[in-house]
């Protein structure tokens, strides 16, 4: 109970989750020892009846579809000088054009692709690192735990954004996947902490002892016994990391450290400000990219609250 609540509290602030789950004793029983496949249908049943999950999913999937299918229907490439400069939204150019006559809608659609790619890869990388470190530290304990914990704390305190600026400025990260990779490398610590705390509380359970007695290796125990009991939590963690990566990437792009070979929503805002769209009143240039990010990330957060209710029957009753 405690952990799920902490989870909701974490959305943007990673604090509560670490605090809440730092006390393993208080961590509620993560759904007993059930096998994951058994209640998948039940989970789906509740998920499809939760308005927050539905709304969040519809918005996110809608943008995803637009990003995936949109380019096929566009007449102009993002950087093409397609029409009259500074044209307000019209039938030909649904989001208007830039000072150079580029189609803002085409840029937006291309930017959506980068946004989802960064979220998926960045979130994925940090989830894998965080979970691996969390599992190993929590399960092994002892010196390994101490060392990994120290590493986690150090990376946690380092302002990751700042290191990303240096890396991007020097190493010239000029592709979306590389950017996502670097973002992932610096955003895993709170995941590692939370996963570690939960693994600690699971480690002393009977079914883990049983697995250990039957001589199964550590990796297998973590994969087959520990992780399935945390699937719901891990999934929600991934959703948060996904949103976080998108926001970080947008900030980097805005500073001018984004990909040079692709369009992104952050880059659109960078160009809009650089070419004084604000003073020229070209609101159609800078509103869509920010609104897109806000809606995608906001929907992810709201979906997460809904998922929390789905996975946690106690919250569901409320």
């Amino acid at each position: 109970m405690r952990k799920e609540n902490g989870m909701t509290a974490t959305q943007p602030i990673t604090g509560p989750v670490t605090e809440a789950s730092e006390q393993p004793g208080a961590t509620g029983s993560p759904s007993g020892g059930r096998k994951p496949g058994g209640d998948a249908r039940e989970t789906l049943y509740f998920a499809l009846r939760n308005p927050k999950v539905i709304i969040g999913m519809v918005v996110v999937l809608g943008f995803l579809l637009l990003g995936l299918l949109g380019p096929a229907f566009l007449r102009y490439a993002p950087m093409d000088y397609a029409g009259p400069p500074m044209a307000p939204p019209s039938a030909d150019f649904p989001f208007g054009t830039t000072t150079f006559g580029q189609d803002v809608f085409a840029q937006f659609v291309a930017g959506l692709r980068s946004t989802f790619l960064v979220g998926l890869l960045g979130g994925g990388v940090s989830a894998v690192i965080g979970m691996t470190i969390g599992f190993v530290a929590g399960y092994r304990g002892g010196l390994i735990d101490e060392l990994l914990n120290m590493l986690t704390n150090v990376v946690l305190v380092i302002p990751g954004f700042v290191v990303l600026i240096i890396i991007n400025a020097y190493l010239g990260v000029r592709s979306v996947p590389m950017q996502a990779l670097y973002i992932g490398v610096f955003s895993w610590p709170w995941v590692a902490r939370a996963v570690r705390a939960q693994t600690l509380s699971l480690r002393s359970r009977d079914f883990i002892d049983l697995a250990r007695l039957s001589g199964v290796g550590v990796g297998t125990i973590l994969r087959r016994e520990v992780a399935p009991n945390m699937y719901s939590y891990l999934f929600m963690t991934f959703v948060l990391l996904f949103g976080g990566s998108i926001l970080t990437a947008a900030s980097l792009d805005f500073i001018g450290l984004g990909p040079t070979n692709a369009m992104s929503l952050g880059l659109m805002m960078n160009q809009a400000v650089q070419w004084s769209a604000l003073h020229l009143g070209l609101w159609w240039w800078f509103i869509p990219p920010g609104l897109g990010i806000t809606l995608i990330v906001g929907s992810l957060y709201i979906m997460n609250v809904g998922l929390d209710e789905v996975f946690n029957p106690k919250l569901r009753e409320m």
């Binding site: 959305q11 926001l247 900030s251 800078f286 990219p289 920010g290 990010i293 609250v305």
Partner: peptide, 27 residues
């Protein structure tokens, strides 16, 4: 408060800054 809170948190920092600059500054 909850949905508004989530949307505000999901806003990229610079976007809100751009909106404020445009709304209160330019417009």
């Amino acid at each position: 408060a909850l949905p508004v809170g989530y949307l505000i948190t999901a806003m990229p920092y610079m976007w809100l800054a751009i909106l404020l600059a445009w709304g209160f500054g330019v417009a």
